[in-house]
C-alpha cells in the first residue's frame, strides 16, 4: 500500500490544462518533494488528493482509499497546509485550534499548546491581526495538530523567516521519524534538497521525472561565471562538463556539470579576477538539463 498514489491523474479546468497523466507513488514514511515552477500543476495535484476538486480522468488514492469516494476517511489521517493560509478573521488562534481539534477523535489541546509554543505562536492573538509569517505558523500547527499519518504541505516555507524555517524542518524530520509520510511542494529546489528523500518534478502539468535526491544532487549543474585579468584569454575549450558557454564583456558564463577538480585546476592556470559558482535556479535546471533529455 502506498501513502499516496495517482494513476494517470488528469485535470482540465474547462479547456485549460491543470495536470495531465500524473503518476506518482509515495511510499509510507518517505519525504517527497514536489517541485515545479508556478502554474505547473502542483496545487492542482494537491487539491485533487484532498478532493477539493474532481479529476477529469484518472484516479488518486491515499493509504489505499480512493480520494473521491473515501475523502472523509482520508482526512482523518491527513494534515494539510495550504499555499495561502486563510482562516476565520473573527477567531483567535486558540479558537481556531479548538475548532479544528473538534473535528477529530481524541483531545488535541495539549499538542496544540506544545506546537504553538514550539513555533512561538501567541494563542490569544486575533487571526486578523496575524502577520503573513504568523499565519503560516498557525497553518503549520493546525496541519500537525491531530497527529496525521500523511502531511500534505503546499509551498510550506514561503513567508517563514530562516529561523522558523529551520525549526519547521526539525519538526518535520521528527514527525518523519515517527513514520509520518510527508508530501511537500515547492518551487525552490534547494529547499527540497535539504529534506526530501525523493523528488518529483512537474512542468506544464506533466511529471518530468521522479528521482532519488542523491541522483539529482549528483547530476546537478553549477552556474559558473569567471572574469580573467587578461581579457583575451581563451577558456574552457574542450573541458568536460561545460555547457552553454557564452562570453560577454570579458566574462565567461557556463553551466558546469562535471568533476570540479579539473575545472579548478584549469582556472588556476590563469589569472582570475572574479569567480562566481552558484546554484542554478530551478528554471535553469529545467532549461538545461531536463529538456535536453
Amino acid at each position: 500500500m502506498y501513502a499516496a498514489e495517482t494513476k494517470n491523474l488528469t485535470k482540465y479546468y474547462g479547456k485549460s490544462r491543470g495536470i495531465v497523466d500524473v503518476n506518482l507513488r509515495l511510499a509510507e514514511g518517505e519525504i517527497f518533494g514536489f517541485i515545479g515552477p508556478n502554474g505547473a500543476g502542483k496545487t492542482t495535484t494537491i487539491r485533487l488528493l484532498l478532493n477539493l476538486i474532481f479529476p477529469t480522468s484518472g484516479s488518486a488514492s491515499i493509504f489505499g482509499l480512493d480520494c473521491v469516494e473515501k475523502s472523509t476517511e482520508i482526512k482523518r489521517q491527513v494534515g494539510y497546509l495550504p499555499g495561502e493560509v486563510n482562516y476565520y478573521g473573527d477567531m483567535r488562534v486558540r479558537d481556531l485550534l479548538e475548532y479544528s481539534g473538534r473535528f477529530y477523535a481524541g483531545d488535541c489541546s495539549r499538542r496544540g499548546r506544545e506546537l504553538a509554543a514550539a513555533f512561538d505562536l501567541n494563542l490569544d492573538a486575533r487571526i486578523e491581526d496575524l502577520s503573513l509569517g504568523n499565519k503560516k505558523k498557525l497553518g503549520i500547527v493546525q496541519a500537525l495538530l491531530h497527529s496525521p499519518r500523511l502531511l500534505i504541505l503546499d509551498e510550506p516555507t514561503t513567508g517563514l523567516d530562516p529561523l522558523i524555517q529551520r525549526r519547521f524542518f526539525d519538526v518535520l524530520l521528527e514527525e518523519n521519524k515517527k513514520g509520518v509520510t510527508i508530501f511537500f511542494s515547492s518551487h525552490v529546489l534547494n529547499e527540497v534538497q535539504r529534506l526530501c528523500h525523493r523528488v518529483g518534478i512537474i512542468k506544464e502539468g506533466r511529471i518530468l521525472r521522479v528521482d532519488d535526491i542523491e541522483t539529482i544532487r549528483a547530476q546537478q549543474f553549477k552556474k559558473v561565471s569567471v572574469t580573467f585579468k587578461a581579457p583575451s584569454q581563451e577558456f574552457a575549450v574542450g573541458l568536460k562538463g561545460v555547457r552553454d558557454l557564452v562570453r560577454e564583456n570579458g566574462t565567461y558564463r557556463f553551466l558546469f556539470g562535471g568533476d570540479m577538480d579539473p575545472l579548478v585546476k584549469e582556472l588556476a592556470k590563469r589569472n582570475v579576477e572574479n569567480l562566481w559558482i552558484e546554484e542554478p535556479t530551478l528554471e535553469e535546471v529545467f532549461m538545461h538539463y531536463y529538456e535536453k533529455e
Binding site: 484532498l50 477539493l52 472523509t72 482526512k75 495550504p82
Partner: peptide, 12 residues
C-alpha cells in the same frame, strides 16, 4: 474568505 479549504480538509 477561502476558509473552505480549511474546512474541507477536516474529516467532514
Amino acid at each position: 474568505e477561502k476558509t473552505i479549504e480549511f474546512l474541507l480538509a477536516r474529516p467532514v
